[in-house]
Design a protein around this nucleic acid. Structure first.
Lengths: 200, 200
DNA sequence: ACATTTGCTTAACACTGTTAAATAATCTAA
DNA sequence: TTAGATTATTTAACAGTGTTAAGCAAATGT
């Protein structure tokens, strides 16, 4: 029965369509404007069929976040692969993180926003949310000559990196902050500063 | 007509009650659970009378944010007044900022959250939102011997401070991050590091 | 005592997420 | 081909949201 395959392919397709429609709406009108009926409008169905593909609206948000983490991880890995020295890798990766945030503002908000309306709470239980950590701490450990990737010192250094970059991103996403050029300079200074501070 | 005064006092009182009820609900159930009817329940009225005091739900959120900025500014000023040297002032103020964020999680989320559902957009036009900037850049300017408080260099240094502190706060508010003790250490290190970097 | 203003509520509208029932379309088997 | 069973999709409904307009009731001014 090849028709079964076709039908499965179609179902998978509308599943993708739902996610794409959701992201499109969010990009055009923001998270607060996303509604099931609007998604249904875009994919030319009525709202209840969405529940054949996702258990709830929150499940859609969660899946979008998941894909966001995958996309970010892919970019981080590509950035890492450009260099061999851990110091260069770290600089390239955090610049890549910065670029991801602004190229995917809405996604970034969902992934790392202090959600206010707390769109999807279980994002912390998403396994993909741990991927960036894995990719980056590898270079930190190598740079510091530490093997145990879960050691407190690596953890601390990771959070030091993350907080400064995420903080800078947040401020810019909040429409605060200076011109992009100045902020890039602050970012570069901070990153190289931290790298130097942990270079043996 | 003293009764006019009494009646005005009562009106002011329910205005305060509305705000307190809103904050109470947010603290107990989160921003996403805040609704006009719930507020009305708490103050023992029906929903429409709230519109005699606030033009919209967003206006309530805006006023809560305004009070948040005032409260934060007051704490920052008190922290500043504890010392005379700008370096000590800066350290004390940013620690105070950190403490404010965790003592008023919900308020902080509203004020500095990448709102996702973008609760109130005009928070940037709130004059009170600029108070922390005024208080802190004063010390930065003094420390760097610069008079023009709007100079790019002060601006940049302010954002450097803010991004690292806000980033660290965000990560902890996201349930990520280490123990409070370690994070306080990261915070202190970062703050003193920046202070040292701008001390002539 | 009547008229007017004020305070407050009820009712309604257009939305929201979500579920159950009803219908339309498709596939299966005789 | 036709009858029956499945599946796909929609309509209707529920409870909730922010918000507005209409109505009522109590206090006030004359």
């Amino acid at each position: 029965m090849a028709s079964k395959d076709r039908i499965l392919r179609l179902k998978e397709e509308t599943r993708v369509n739902i996610l794409e429609a959701a992201l499109q709406i969010v990009k055009e009108e923001g998270w607060q404007a996303l509604s099931m009926r609007k998604i249904a409008d875009v994919i030319e169905y009525t709202a209840p069929i969405i529940y054949e593909y996702f258990a709830s609206k929150e499940a859609i948000l969660l899946e979008l976040n998941r894909q966001g983490y995958l996309k970010l991880s892919k970019q981080l890995q590509e950035a890492k692969d450009k260099h061999t020295s851990p110091a260069d890798q770290l600089e390239e990766m955090w610049l890549s993180y910065w670029n991801f945030a602004f190229a995917n503002k809405e996604l970034y908000q969902g992934m790392f926003g202090i959600t206010t309306s707390c769109a999807c709470k279980m994002v912390n239980e998403l396994p993909e949310a741990g991927l960036p950590w894995d990719i980056i701490t590898g270079s930190i450990g190598e740079l510091m000559n530490i093997e145990d990737m879960d050691s407190d010192i690596i953890c601390t250094k990771y959070y030091t990196f993350w907080s400064v970059v995420h903080g800078l991103v947040s401020i810019n996403l909040l429409d605060r902050g200076d011109s992009d050029k100045i902020n890039r300079q602050v970012l570069r200074d901070a990153i190289t500063g931290i790298i130097r501070s942990i270079t043996p």
